[in-house]
Structure formats: structure tokens, C-alpha cells
Amino acid sequence: MTLVQVDGIFQSYGPRPILERVSLSVGEGEFISIVGASGCGKSTFLRLLLDQERPTRGQITVDGQPLKGEPDRTRGIVFQRYSVFPHLTVRDNIVAAEGLSRPLGRLFGPARRAARARADATLDRIGLAHVAHQYPAALSGGMQQRLAIAQALAAKPRILLLDEPFGALDPGTREQMHAFLTDLRQETPMTVFMVTHDLREAFKLGDRVIVFDKTRWDPHDPAAYGATITYDFDARNGGIPYQLKEDQDGSSHPAAQPAA
């Protein structure tokens, strides 16, 4: 079943095109890894999915509904940095995932106590219970990202967007974070888009790996053309591009078929 449908997106900043003719269908529960060279519009694409920016042309629909023009609770996000609130303790960062949606941005009385109990349970599960009362600045990079992911998930989004979430972590911590993310996904099925520079990570975690690149290139003016999706790999099947599979046996990814 198609959850996210991207139709003919163009995005340019002023005269500078970033993305051209980007179309994509993503089924509910899929994990999409997005790779590509620096500056090829991966993060721009993520911001469009988040609805932090509007495309110059084209449309994105989620569940058949066009995006509303600003981020909301259906799409969670984890950035490479600055994802957690520095002025809140680790536990209150999780509580904020529930409290921020209230009129005053926080919970009071019994609701707060209940949210704190749930937050403590979450922290127990993700192995951060021992630092519940510390501030994020006192945590290591890996712990901060674990907290950021748990915070995003506490709002129970249907779609999780990850913008190079493990880019600043050392290789060992990164492996732990992969296992952590895989476990979380088994517990709560959701659709994930992850931008990464690490190809191995992209294929390890993703169901599909899509590649952004420029199909037209003017050596005298590298910024003349935008990027588009050049490859769409089935990461669960030896990394064969769907385009090739379609050519060979006529099969295609279920979500790649036009929505009925």
C-alpha cells in the first residue's frame, strides 16, 4: 500500500535548481535509504518530505492527502545535531514529546506524572535510565542520538525522517545504533527515510536504497542542473536496481506501481 507519493518534484533556490523531476512511491513500513554526493539535494528532499519547505513544482501526498504546509506529528525527525532540547533533562526530553503538543507546551499534574513514568520505561528500554536526570550536554554523541530517536518515536509518527543521524558517531557506536534502530523498527512498524553518506549503512538498514545524482552536467556551470533519483535498489534482494528487475522479468516493486 502506498503511503508516500512524490510526483514530479522540482525545487530551486532562486535561479539555482536543486531537484528535478523527482518521483517516488513508498509503501507503508518501508525503510528508504537516500544516498548521493554532497550538495545533490538529499537533505532538501528530506525537508520537502518534512514540509519544512514547499517544492517549486510537483506535489507530495501522504496517504493520499497533500502536505499541509508545516511540519506536524505525523512525521518525526532526527537531525545530525541539535535534535534534543539542551535545557531539558534526558527524561524531560522524552516527556516533551507528549507535552509539547499541549496548549502551553507542557503537561501538568497527574498527566505529567503518567508521562514521566512512561518516559522512565522508555529510558529503561533504550539504556539511558542511569542518565535520566542529566542534561544532554553531559551525554556522549551516541547517547544523544539514541535520545533523539527515542524522543521522535515517543510522538508515535507514521513516518520517521533521519538526516545523517549517525554521521558524527564513531564506527563502534554506529554499529550499536544500527542494532538499536533495527530493534525499534521491529517493535513499532513505521516508514523511515534515512539520508546517509555511508553506503554500507544504507544497504544494511534500508529496504530500498535510492540514489540522487545529476543526470545532466555542464562542466562550465556545475550548478546549472538539479539532481534526480538515478537508481532505486532493492536492498533486500542483493541490491538489484528495480529498473533492471523490471527489464528482466517484468516484476516491479509493489509500491512503484502507480496508485490505483
Partner: peptide
């Protein structure tokens, strides 16, 4: 942005 994705007004 993060606060908005958590539903903050």
C-alpha cells in the same frame, strides 16, 4: 522544527 514535529503550537 523538532518541536513542530512533536506537535507544539
Amino acid at each position: 522544527v523538532k518541536a513542530q514535529t512533536l506537535g507544539a503550537s
